[in-house]
Structures are given as C-alpha cells and as structure tokens.
Design a protein around this nucleic acid. Structure first.
Lengths: 358, 358
DNA sequence: ACAGCATAGTAAACCGATTTAGTAAGATAC
DNA sequence: GTATCTTACTAAATCGGTTTACTATGCTGT
C-alpha cells in the first residue's frame, strides 16, 4: 500500500482564473470553511481555535494569496460597503471637486462608490438611483441633482434644495453669499449692477437668485429686469456666459458691475466685455462664484464667492456613513449649511469716475 | 369552513427594507423560482411557459416592483458587469475628461465602474487594483498610472507607457505632438525656446520629452539645459508652472518661446511672464498641452496641442469591453496610438524684432 | 393500447462566503 | 464514575438569484 499523501483531494478548483476560494483554502488545510472564516475575519468565534492553528491558517492564506470574494460576503451579510454618487456630469469643475471630497472620506472608511452622470436627462435621473439600488448601494449622494423619493436607502444631496423625505441637504448659505458679493460691490461704490442667473435645471439657481434679490433690497440696490441674464444650454463652457453678456451689453442699459452665476460664466463674460471695449475691472467689475482652481489664474484674477466644494463632498460622505452605520442614533439632520467666503482678487474695483458711461 | 384564501402562505418576507425577492415573488404567484427566473430573464428555457403565464409573471413583477439583486446574480454567473478605474486624482481636468469618455461607453453597455485615486502614493497604486479585483471587477482602466502585473483581469492604460503584460496602452503620438508645436514656433521665426517638462511621476513626461528633443534636433533647434525647467510637486495647480517659469526667467538666458507640459502650467507661466514684464505673445510665445476647456478662454487664448482625452477614455472602455466579452477573438492590441492636433489661438506670434532682448 | 413527444413546469445544486447550532474528545469537579 | 465544562472544531443553513436535470400530464400517432 502506498504511503498516504497529505490530504489533497482538492475538489475545489484553483485554475488561475478565479483565485483561490475559501473552500479550496480549507481543503488545502484539512479544516472546515467555518474555521478558516473565523480566523480570517478575527471573529469572536475564533477564540476557541488555538494560536498554532490560527497561524497555520493565516500563513496558508497569505501563501495562496487568498482574497475573500467581496460579492459573496456582501450577499451573505447584506452589506455592500458601496455607495452611489449621482452627478450631472464629470468633466465640470464643480462636480469633480465635490467628488474628490466624497472619495477622500469614503475610501478611507473602506467604502467604494459608483459614479453615474445623467446630463440633466430626466429619465436617467429617475433610472440611475434604481439601478444603483439594484446593485445594493447602501446610500446615495446626489450632486446638484434632485433625488426622487422612490429610493429607500439613505440619501444626501449636495445643493439639492428640495425637501425630499429621507434626504439630508448640504447647502451653501446663499443669503450670506449674496450679501458678501453685493456688499463688496456696494462698498466699492457700485450702484448699477447686472446679474447672470444659472440655468433653469441647476438646483442652485432659484435659491441663489432669491438671495440676491433679498440682499439687493437690503442694500437698496435696484435689480433691473433688463440687466438680468440667464445662462442657457447644457454645456458648462464659458461660451454661455459670453453669450448672455453680449445680450446684456446689447440692451443698452448701463452697468458698472456684473455678478455671475459661476466662475466659468464669469470667464466668458469678461471676454465679451473686453471685446465690447469695456475693461475689467476699470469699466466693469465682475464677481464670479465657486472659486474653481483656475479662477485665481485668470487675467484679471477673479474676485469670487468661494463655495467649499471639497468640504461639502466630505461632509456629505460623513453624514451618509453616519446614517448608514448608526441609523437610529440621530434622527438625521434635514439640512447642513456651509458658509461661503469672499475671495477678493483683481476683477473688481471702484466704478469709473464718469458713472453710467455706456 | 371558511372560504379558502388565495395562496399566500408567504414564508418569504417583504418588509420594506430589502425590496421583494425572487422567492417572495414566486410564492406570491404560486410558481417556482425557476419559472419566474426564466421569464424575467427571457431565458430560452422560458419557451415552454405559455404566454398567459409569462404575462402574469411580468405583471406581478412590475406591480411588486421586483428588481433582481445584482449581487446574487453576479455571484452565480461570475459576471459583475463592473470595472475599475484607477486615476491619480479626480479634481484634475485631465483625469476628469478621460473619465467622462470612459463613463459614456461603459454605462451605455450596462457596466458600472468604481473609481479610486491614488495621489501618486505607491502603496495605493499597488493595493487598489487588488482591492478592485476582490470586488470582482472584470477589467481595469488605469489613467496616467502604471498597472502592476499582479492583476489577472484585462487592463487598459491611458498614457501608461510601460510594457506590462496583458495591458493595452492607449497613447498619444508624442512625436507628432512635439513636431506640431515646435514646427509652429519655428515657422513663426522662433529659435530660442524654453521648455517645461512634466513631473517625474507622470508617465507622459519621459516619452514627451524624448519626442521634444527629437523634434528639436530635426528642426535644428537647440535645447539648452538652462532653458529646461521641470514641474515639481503633487498638485495640479498653475502655481507649479508659475514657479518654474520664474526660475527660467531668473537664469538670465534669453528666450522668445515657451513650450509647457500642460495647459495648467502654461497658465501659470503666462502669469509669471507678465509679472516679469514680458507680454504674451508679443515678447514670448507660449504653447500649452492638452487643450483643457478653459484653454480657449484664457487671456490670451492658449495655443495648445490638443489631446483627444475624452476619445481616449472612450477607446479605452471599448477595447476593455471587447477584451472582456471576446477574450479570444483578437489576441489583444499592445498599443493604440491617437493623434494630437495643434490648436492655434492667441498665445503665439512672431518673435519680437529685437530678438533675444531679455 | 401504448410509445413517444410536447407542454408546463419543479426540485435541487450552485456561486463563495458567513453564521448558528451542534458534536466529539479530553479535562475537571464532585 | 459520571456530570459538566472546555477546547477545537464541523455540518448545515443562509444570502438571492441562475441553471441543470428531471417529472407529471396530456395529446398524437400507429
């Protein structure tokens, strides 16, 4: 009779394709899957397994390069450690900054995330959250997007501005933002101001505009319909700001200051002003919004209202994970307000001495 | 004896938490899970199930809002329809553009993707691909990152520039890119050129620099060590370009043209030049690289070598899915070359009449 | 009358883990 | 000597689907 070989019946396969499974590892060790699982996960049940055996198991796991299937684990534990992020589009500076804040916190906590971008198409805004849920995300973060309430995982909206049940809103203090900008311009001596509102689909547009009107009223500044433009179109190119500004100039109403919806449109606006022979800031002061990276490196460097976009992303991730891991602790905040900051650079100055020159 | 109620024993639960399961749906219908599964998936096995029943099943599924668990399905079918994207960081214009190209194709084909950013930290570059694999991604796309070969799923690198087995490289034709830029400057009459190389960690740096030297030799242009700067530091802010340019100016060697590693650094460079009293393009012409969105809206608008970043992302996704779904068809291309395009704007012009004025 | 085939499904294995309940062997207590 | 307690595990259920193999019934052909 031949000497008995070490247990190596190996019903579990190990063709390079899939990596080694728990079953394979257990058989290799001559132990049950349960025992191996206990040790690998440092489960309390492992306390009855002697140190010697534990080391054997860990050594084998390392040697065979065992990596538990996250999918199998998710299925069993009903925990995916995955969340979904819904953004309008990726290329835009805004969403990218928020995402990088989100990512920071999520990866650090061992969560991964799916990103989907809907390009403002309604059917996608409806469908993606459901698809994400099907993929067992434990929560959703929506950036500048209104989450429908058909979703039953915790949600956090960055600039969502809609009262959706179960969704926490992270919003900028727009009142303060508008005050900062208008106050700054008023202090410089500006009275005739023009404004560029955001696209209708952006959830910030409405709130911010309301805040601007409020602030203007407080400062006793007139908001003329003729001097109020609105961005139009999907893209996030400076071209939109360029076009609106041309219209504002064409209407003939004089102005010495322009408050735009974001930095991108401010950049386009400055271009249009310059082409029309108006110098920035000598003839017209321009205040942007967001403080995207390149704002500081425009010529002239942009005065702008800074939104702490990265922080907003981080906060969103923090709140979401809190809500996921301790759903009962806090009933969950409805809204979290972050503060803007006025960054004064070179695109604003006193109005020209001959005011109203057009 | 009370009238018999419709079959509704319902061992399967349906508390709002988890949505309905196949088991619940099957019991609700009084059918087996298999039958329901066949119909839902339009599997060939469903042909033996009469239309009437099929409709009943589909109606119930719709009504109960049944959504199969993607995780359970993945486990059984060993297909996750998920891929992993590895980028240096998200906030940068470069990666964001490539990602948006990737996303376009992936979502369209029913795949989702995880994003991880490694911030050039080696341990993360090593670890993330393994973690992604553990999460059963079917392939990896690395952007400006060298994939280690310890991964055994198909990989595609965008600007990877390293010969990793099993990885397809999508690269720009850097020789042509360098030629376009230098030819353009030479045609304008420039002879004294300065250069800004990329950071050491960027995988494009080496290749591009080689191409620049080659092109310069062909055009008989001297590449002086003193007029060669290098970006230093993690961040992707224009500040880096600003600092390098200050050094170039400080060295005292005259130049009339500057070819930068990317648009971001070109923006910083222009700032530095201006502060030193050199006008762009009157005194110094500047050529950027990439053609990021804001390049067109700089002042002056940036002349730059355009990389088709979005397309590179889309191509990466296409190749990857091809390799996943038909692994044997093509042995798999080692390298795919895309062509650059010179975008001439306002930051380049003839050199000044008094050449070499410093 | 009975084989053979189509119809309309069902039972159970399976994917790869986690987890509960339980067991066998040896040590200790009384 | 036996009841009890540890110690060191294991068997089997489970998560929620997919898929293979099989069955029961009715109809057709000869």
């Amino acid at each position: 009779m031949p000497r008995e070989k070490p247990k190596h019946t190996s019903a579990a396969r190990k063709p390079a394709g899939t990596g080694v499974s728990l079953k394979f590892l257990a058989e290799h060790l001559g132990l049950s899957q349960a025992a191996v699982s206990f040790v690998i996960n440092r489960s309390p049940a492992a306390k009855s397994i002697p140190h010697r055996t534990q080391e054997l198991i860990r050594a084998a796991a390392r040697e065979l390069n065992y990596r538990p299937s996250h999918i199998a684990r998710s299925l069993r534990q009903q925990r995916s450690f995955t969340i979904g992020v819904v953004v309008p589009e990726i290329s835009e500076g805004y969403a990218a900054l928020v995402m990088s804040g989100i990512e920071d916190h999520l990866l650090q906590e061992g969560y991964f995330y799916f990103v989907v971008s809907h390009h403002h198409r309604n059917e996608l805004i409806e469908e993606y959250p459901l698809l994400l849920q099907q993929r067992a995300v434990e929560g959703l973060i929506a950036v500048d997007t209104v989450l429908s309430d058909r979703v039953d995982v915790p949600g956090v909206a960055v600039s969502g501005h809609r009262d959706v049940p179960g969704v926490t809103n992270i919003v900028l203090n727009h009142d303060r933002a508008a005050c900062l900008a208008l106050q700054h311009l008023a202090n410089l001596g500006h009275r005739k101001m023009a404004f560029i509102k955001g696209q209708a689909f952006s959830s910030d547009t409405e709130v911010r505009w309301e805040a601007v009107r409020e602030a203007a009223k407080k400062l006793n500044i007139e908001v003329k319909g003729m001097l109020t433009g609105q961005l139009e179109g999907e893209s996030s190119s400076p071209l939109l700001g360029y076009q609106v500004t041309q219209k504002l100039l064409a209407c003939g109403e004089p102005f010495t200051a322009l408050f735009t919806f974001n930095d991108i449109s401010a950049i386009g606006a400055i271009q249009a002003l310059r082409e029309a022979g108006r110098q920035v800031p000598e003839d017209v002061s321009v205040v942007g919004f967001d403080d995207i990276q390149s704002a500081a490196f425009q010529n002239p460097a942009l005065t702008t209202v800074r939104q702490p976009l990265r922080e907003m992303g981080t906060i969103a991730a923090e709140i979401l994970l809190e809500r996921i891991t301790a759903p009962t602790k806090t009933p969950h905040p409805k809204e979290i307000v972050v503060e803007p900051e006025l960054i004064i650079r070179a695109s604003t100055a006193h109005p020209p001495k001959t005011p109203g020159l057009n």
